[in-house]
């Protein structure tokens, strides 16, 4: 019961932030709404006893990635005239209809969820840095080390793309 009382306001913050982000015309406002949404999601993670992911969500998404977004927006330095006016075109109508259909199908899918017996007692140290670290460097070592290759590739790729014409 207390969980539901905490969950619904947090979910509302997450969804409200997301809606505000797509609805706001000013890109900087949009970015700030996105931060709000990230905070909402992070608090839902806390409710799920995933404290580490909640902290990472704040540090990485609301912190680092958003700073990057705001930097790009400021570098572009958009004027009021550059911003597109919202208009009703066949494309937007179709897109909206598709999103609505997707939402309805998702509703059907998720209301059909099988009853699963969730563990009532969490294992010792669940979702904390030490146990996640033990998992990453234990059984998950192959995907974890592959991720380091992925980051290196992304770095080399970004440099290649950012270079002036070859």
């Amino acid at each position: 019961m207390t969980e539901a009382m905490l969950f619904y306001p947090m979910a509302l913050v997450a969804i409200g932030g997301a809606l505000g982000m797509i609805a706001s015309r000013n890109p900087v406002h949009g970015a700030m709404y996105l931060v709000l949404s990230f905070f909402g999601i992070a608090s839902v993670y806390v409710l799920l006893a995933a404290e580490l992911i909640a902290a990472l969500q704040i540090i990485v998404y609301a912190g680092a990635i958003m700073v990057l977004f705001v930097f790009v927006i400021m570098l572009l330095n958009l004027n009021e005239d550059d911003l597109e006016r919202p208009r009703l075109t066949p494309g937007t109508i179709f897109g909206g209809a598709a999103a609505l259909a997707f939402w309805m199908i998702s509703f059907m899918v998720f209301s059909d969820l099988p009853d699963q017996t969730m563990p009532t007692e969490l294992p010792e140290g669940f979702g904390q840095v030490a146990s996640v670290g033990r998992l990453i460097f234990g059984p998950f070592i192959v995907p974890f080390e592959s991720t380091s290759i992925l980051l290196l590739v992304a770095m080399v790729g970004a440099i290649v793309v950012a270079k002036p014409r070859i």
Binding site: S146, I149, L150, V153, G157, A158, V160, V161
Partner: peptide, 10 residues
Amino acid sequence: LEIMSISTYA
């Protein structure tokens, strides 16, 4: 999939 894709984007 991401290692493959990101390299090919670049």
